[in-house]
Design a protein around this nucleic acid. Structure first.
Lengths: 191, 191
DNA sequence: ACCTGAACACCGTTCAAGT
DNA sequence: ACCTGAACACCGTTCAAGT
């Protein structure tokens, strides 16, 4: 009978989940804690999300959309500076949101939304490699750069670069070498 | 009074944990299930490991030692073939043991054993880059290759290469371009 | 020494009952 | 329509009690 105006929303729950995740890791994202953060009990969350997993997936989607938007802003420079800018944006995002970043590559069932969001995030880099080396090598070049970026930041976030040296300089070297390798045209390209 | 001969061992539990992990993911590795696999109840595991976390860490250590041994076998070829062989070994290991592989880069407290095991695993690749480009660029070159390899396989395992094309050829291209970039000597090397 | 059942705290999830 | 408390199954972990 009563209108029963909602006391929360998808966006509020996602924001709460993200804050809890970033503060205390995945274990801190309990249904109880997320509910408490928006003034509601745990079971109420099931009015908006099918499961804790679905809530985490929505959190991942929001983060991926944010990263995509940031990457897009670097798209209208010359190819090489755009590439370097995108690499810096990607790395900064991961360092500012390490837990959410880990979520993006966490193993999980591949639903359509996840695949689509990842394709959106990959587009800006692919557009740049296309301008850099043309259509034939654009996809493998983008994959090399994506793998390098993801691998680098996830090793960095895992705290696994322990052998000393200047990490900033090492990253510049790695990115520079990858770009030089792509531009060299000497890598085997079997289409 | 009785000698009370043990009905299990560290190695047996680690093997059981690894099998459960690979079959059903981290959630399948419950203390009850691991115990049942070796004919013992859950609480008995605490005689050998401080916690489930410690058991998983021991599983990770065993896997890392195995990977290290495989990588070492490729060390006595000429630098470039050794590099290509190591890359193939690394990628094969990850595809054959996807869940254990994910464990290796899972965020966790960095104890000494973990740091040491990772340094052991990194050594073969570092030795090869040293022969390839000399001492000054060996570390950043090894980091580039490690990041590329880890990033590539973890994206591959996450099922996130969705844009088509031949993945085998794309991997050969990525590795080839990285090596060419390293050999070009044109990447910025600020030590 | 090693193992066990019982117990505790905590979690995701369901659901009948409330407004 | 939305929220709640109670309940269920399950988990890691502890511990007194057994051999």
């Amino acid at each position: 009978m009563c209108p029963a105006v909602a006391r929360t929303s998808d966006a509020a729950l996602v924001a709460a989940a993200r804050a809890l995740l970033e503060q205390g890791g995945p274990d801190a994202v309990t249904m109880h804690a997320v509910g408490a953060a928006v003034g509601v009990r745990g079971p109420s969350l099931y009015n908006r999300f099918e499961s804790r997993e679905a809530l985490l997936r929505a959190t991942e989607q929001a983060a991926l959309a944010e990263l995509t938007a940031r990457l897009r802003e670097a798209g209208d420079q010359a190819p090489r500076p755009a590439l370097e800018r995108m690499a810096a944006i990607y790395r900064d995002f991961a360092r500012q949101n390490p837990q959410v970043y880990a979520l993006i590559y966490a193993p999980a069932g591949e639903d359509e939304a996840r695949v689509a969001a990842r394709a959106m995030a990959a587009a800006p880099l692919l557009a740049v490699t296309q301008r850099l080396v043309g259509a034939s090598a654009a996809l493998p070049a983008a994959r090399l750069l994506t793998a390098l970026l993801h691998g680098w930041v996830s090793i960095e976030l895992a705290g696994a670069f322990r052998l000393g040296g200047n990490l900033e300089a090492a990253f510049a070297y790695a990115l520079g070498a990858a770009i030089e390798g792509i531009l060299s045209g000497r890598a085997p390209l079997r289409v």
